[in-house]
Measured scan of single mutants.
Amino acid sequence: MSIQHFRVALIPFFAAFCLPVFAHPETLVKVKDAEDQLGARVGYIELDLNSGKILESFRPEERFPMMSTFKVLLCGAVLSRVDAGQEQLGRRIHYSQNDLVKYSPVTEKHLTDGMTVRELCSAAITMSDNTAANLLLTTIGGPKELTAFLHNMGDHVTRLDRWEPELNEAIPNDERDTTMPAAMATTLRKLLTGELLTLASRQQLIDWMEADKVAGPLLRSALPAGWFIADKSGASERGSRGIIAALGPDGKPSRIVVIYTTGSQATMDERNRQIAEIGASLIKHW
């Protein structure tokens, strides 16, 4: 058993032996400061991975655009179909130039040979490839079927209504393609630790998130040596930015963190910096 498999397999085991986890309101002070700095709403939640207890939250039940963070949920739905014998990670999917949409750094290189379902999930999560996400959405029946999958998990909040890139429109008060921090954190925890997916599929999902290559300026920039993080970021119109993550010290995840912001006029660099500073406060007061 690899170190990674050891880590995921023991998450339920550690729940019975973990020390009490204490919240630190200092992080919420930073979240509120980020709102002031960005001139935008910020949603935040910090969840204990083992118990599911909410440690801190700010606007946990307000809607925010999901942006590309939905791609983790999408690959969770794909893995659920794999577990049920309805899909194979090794199945190759062929597509054409007409299928390519904006920001497809991986799929645009494989027009001649296509990509496997496994490769598409990797591209969608680690590189946020939009065509990969659309191709995967097609395999499960489209955005409405992803919403149905989430409903069956008990998440009646999170919804996907459109495809890439239209889902990134982020119109104020538009509930399409949105979630709430509390709903996203709970759903992510179920995917990573619950019985919905097999152990192998849970491991695969967290491996893809751990290999994320496009979230460096966010929480990863504040991470001390030896800490673990598996994450997925997102960005969209109207100053929207977000990240969902499982992270913790000693090389294993122990908390879920979800951060969303929307409605800012700030630059992408400034949005990144504010999220990184929230992460730094979280780690300092861990």
Rank of each mutant, 00 (worst) to 15 (best):
G239R: 03
E195K: 11
L191I: 10
N272I: 02
T179V: 01
A280G: 11
S254I: 07
P249L: 02
T178G: 01
K252D: 05
S201C: 07
E56A: 10
E164D: 01
G142E: 02
D250R: 10
P65L: 04
P60A: 15
S2R: 11
V214D: 05
G226R: 06
V157A: 12
R202G: 06
S2D: 08
I11S: 07
I93A: 01
R59G: 01
G226E: 06
L10S: 11
N152K: 14
S57W: 11
D174P: 02
E35A: 02
I11K: 04
Q265K: 13
A225T: 13
G242T: 01
S68T: 00
L219H: 01
M153K: 05
S240R: 01
S281Q: 10
P249R: 05
A235C: 03
S221R: 11
R220S: 02
G194I: 03
R41W: 05
S236C: 05
V72I: 07
L89E: 04
K30N: 06
C75L: 01
A15C: 13
T179H: 00
K284G: 07
L38R: 03
I244T: 02
P217I: 04
A200S: 14
F22L: 15
P217G: 09
A124S: 09
I3A: 10
A15T: 15
A40Q: 06
M180E: 13
F6D: 06
L282C: 06
L73T: 06
L219A: 01
A84C: 11
L89A: 05
L192S: 02
D269C: 08
T198L: 07
L137P: 00
D177S: 01
Y44K: 00
D269V: 11
I140V: 13
L89I: 08
P224C: 01
L218D: 02
E270G: 07
A246F: 08
R238P: 12
V42A: 05
L223H: 01
A84E: 14
M67N: 15
E61I: 09
H24P: 07
R7D: 09
W163A: 07
G226N: 09
L135I: 13
E270R: 06
A182S: 13
P253F: 06
L197G: 01
L49R: 01
G43D: 00
K284T: 11
M115T: 02
Y44T: 00
A170H: 14
W163L: 09
P172T: 10
R220C: 01
V101I: 10
L55Y: 08
P224M: 01
G251R: 09
N134R: 01
D36I: 15
P12I: 14
S68N: 00
M66R: 00
A9P: 13
S240E: 09
D83Q: 07
G85K: 15
I206Q: 12
R41A: 08
L135R: 02
Y260C: 01
S254F: 05
F6C: 11
M184L: 03
M268L: 13
P217E: 12
A23V: 12
Q97S: 14
E169R: 07
V82D: 03
R202V: 06
R92D: 04
R59H: 06
V117I: 10
L137E: 01
R202P: 15
L38Y: 06
A40R: 01
T131S: 10
S236G: 15
A222F: 06
Q88N: 14
S240I: 08
A124T: 10
L146A: 03
R238K: 13
P224A: 02
V157I: 11
D174A: 03
L19V: 15
L282R: 00
A15S: 15
A266S: 14
I244L: 05
G154A: 03
P224F: 00
N134I: 01
S281V: 15
F13I: 08
D83N: 02
D99E: 15
V72C: 04
R63A: 04
E270K: 09
A276E: 08
K53E: 14
H151Y: 11
S221N: 09
G251S: 09
R220D: 01
V72A: 06
